[in-house]
Simulated assay, not measured.
Amino acid sequence: MDTSHLAEHAGAAGSFFASIFVVATLSMRTMIPLRVFAILTNIVLIATAIPIHNYPTLVLHSVLLPLNVYRLHQMLQLVRDVKKSVSSDLSMEWLKPFMTERKCRADEVLFYKDEKADSMYYIVSGRYRLVESGIELPVGAIVGEFGMLSPSNVRTQTLECIEDGLVLSVSYDQVEQLYVQNPAFGFYLLKLASARLFENIGKLEERLAQQTPPTIAAETA
């Protein structure tokens, strides 16, 4: 059997295995295994395209392979960053690659109390205040994330810009897509949101404790 026949048989076998990987890829429900099978499909099709000189297939999957590798790395990095945030500073900086910029002007209201919530914000620069509570948010703070977890999906306070700045926004739909694509991400996101909620409750209890003694003294005077 000459080399041309060997190449044909290798190409046929490779196409068969590639078809199996394609079917497996289409059956994946989450992003990480989908990317893994897509990478395997790319490798098999590249390997089978070389001996039969199928250059269109070779070029196509040579382009798709690094793209799939990058997307897999991005998703794995996302999960690692969320895990790190849960166990350390509760930061949500890992969401920044999925967010879009929004410039804000002083006196601009980003959202109002009781309106429908559909996005969360990461503060890059400027000054912002939650009107009802009077709390000023620092640079690096995330605001609006609890509306996603609320059954009614409404804002509990009004957010006002009090000094020109920049925020990054991400819609709840985008976050939900990441959740569906990778359940591990969703699990750690819920843990992170819960941890931030308890942290906020703790701060509120501290503020109430500081305000209680003067109140009691005024009542007894």
Rank of each mutant, 00 (worst) to 15 (best):
M28Y: 07
T30W: 04
S19R: 07
L34N: 12
I43T: 14
F17K: 02
I20F: 10
L45C: 03
T41I: 03
I43K: 04
A47R: 01
G11P: 02
R35M: 08
T41H: 03
F17R: 03
S15A: 14
L34I: 08
G11N: 07
V22T: 05
A49G: 05
F17L: 10
A13M: 09
A38P: 14
A13F: 06
I39V: 09
A24V: 12
A18H: 02
L34Y: 13
L40N: 08
N42K: 04
I39N: 03
L26H: 11
I39W: 02
A12M: 15
P33I: 03
T48Y: 02
M31H: 13
P33G: 11
I39Q: 01
I39T: 07
S15H: 09
L40E: 07
T25P: 01
T48A: 12
I43W: 00
T41M: 08
G14W: 00
F17Q: 01
L45N: 02
A12G: 13
N42L: 04
A24N: 12
I46W: 02
T48P: 00
F16A: 07
A18E: 05
T41C: 06
F16R: 06
I20W: 07
I43Q: 04
F17C: 02
T25S: 09
I32R: 15
S27R: 12
A38D: 11
R29H: 12
I20M: 10
V44A: 09
S27L: 15
L40T: 03
F37W: 11
A38V: 14
A38S: 14
T25K: 03
F21I: 02
